Simulated scan of single mutants.
Amino acid sequence: MTAPNDGSMPLIRQDVPTPARMYDYCLGGKDNFPVDRAAVLAVHKQFPEGVTEARNNRLFLYRLVRYLARDAGIRQFLDMGSGLPTQANVHQVAQQFQPDARVVYVDNDPIVLAHGRALLADDRTTTVIAADMTEPERILGDPETRKLIDFSRPVAALFLSIGHSIVDDDRLRSMFEKVWGVLPPGSHLAFSQVCGVDRATVDEGNEMTRRLGLTWRNRTVQEVVDLLRGLEPAETVEPGLVKVVDWRPDPDQPTLEHVDEPLRPYLESPPENQRSMECGILLRKP
């Protein structure tokens, strides 16, 4: 669902859960509805590590963007499927280290667009565009994108915690390849998604999310490797494809907001045998 051309916002449905609002709930946000909270709790009955992994992914975003801005000198960011504005947003992290950093957020969830545009109404270095991230030609050619992003200079394309929202491998692979193809040397592409420890766990998770009415596909780690195989030439930034919690960990980084009371037991007593995790990787175009 994308925003109409007349600038009005599409209907924000409150009868079905959305990944963006479920993620917001796991991060301690308030931009979610009872249907989203119920879906999160249903997921956690089978996969109690879910809230921890959602939060690990947000902490990964901070370390990743900090590395890109501070260490790699990136000043331009394209955040695909950005989700709701929350803590440590990409533009806020990047501009700590590159004050002139420019960020284009892309999403097609109506509530994301409404909140993002309100937050960034007076920000001339950051914008939100309404588009389906699986239509990269439209995104790359959008006037707002072209206004802020100079594709003759390095860009960081972020695909964080979005792979599981695209069930078709070919469509996801095509999205990566088309964006990668226009990025100049020195650019980076980051990706993270929920992975299961084995095929049976992946299939169980996919059946559960199907029953909840979500468009969702967990994958194995090998399937993630296969998705990214066509991005050549590419250098893998250390430590490669790992659990996001293990990607350049920093115990002193900023913390996240507390979660709602029903989710606290899952943080206080993590499962001994974790069956799913968020995995992430950063690639560099030489």
Results as ranks from 00 to 15, higher is better:
Arg264Tyr: 14
Gln193Gly: 13
Glu235Trp: 10
Ile139Thr: 01
Ser161Met: 00
Thr126Gly: 08
Asn108Gly: 08
Glu257Ala: 15
Gly181Ile: 03
Thr126Asn: 07
Pro99Lys: 06
Ser187Val: 03
Arg124Leu: 10
Ala42Met: 02
Pro4Lys: 10
Val242Tyr: 12
Asp150Ala: 06
Met277Lys: 12
Leu267Gly: 03
Pro99Arg: 06
Val90Met: 04
Gly196Thr: 05
Glu53Ile: 08
Phe159Gly: 00
Asp246Ser: 14
Lys30Leu: 11
Arg171Gln: 14
Ile111Gln: 07
Tyr105Thr: 02
Arg138Asn: 08
Asn89Tyr: 00
Val245Ile: 14
Val155Ala: 09
Glu257Phe: 13
Tyr23Thr: 11
Phe60Arg: 03
Met175Trp: 00
Pro85Trp: 04
Pro251Val: 07
Ala94Thr: 01
Asp71Ile: 04
Gly181Asn: 10
Ala69Asp: 08
Gln98Ala: 07
Pro34Arg: 05
Tyr105His: 04
Trp247Leu: 15
Val197Tyr: 02
Ser8Val: 03
Thr86Arg: 06
Trp216Met: 13
Arg58Ser: 13
Ser82Met: 05
Leu228Ala: 15
Ala72Pro: 02
Gly196Leu: 04
Leu189Ala: 06
Val194Tyr: 07
Thr125Ala: 13
Glu261Gly: 12
Asn32Asp: 03
Thr2Pro: 06
Ala130Gln: 05
Pro19Gly: 09
Val106Ile: 07
Thr209Trp: 10
Val259Asn: 11
Val182Arg: 02
Phe191Pro: 00
Thr125Cys: 11
Arg219Glu: 12
Gly29Ser: 12
Leu241Met: 15
Arg210Phe: 10
Gln96Asp: 01
Val182Ala: 06
Pro249Glu: 15
Ala20Ser: 12
Glu272Asp: 11
Ile111Lys: 01
Gly29Met: 06
Gly73Asp: 05
His91Pro: 01
Pro143Phe: 06
Asn108Ala: 12
Gly240Ser: 14
Asp100Ser: 10
Arg102His: 04
Arg138Pro: 00
Asp203Ser: 13
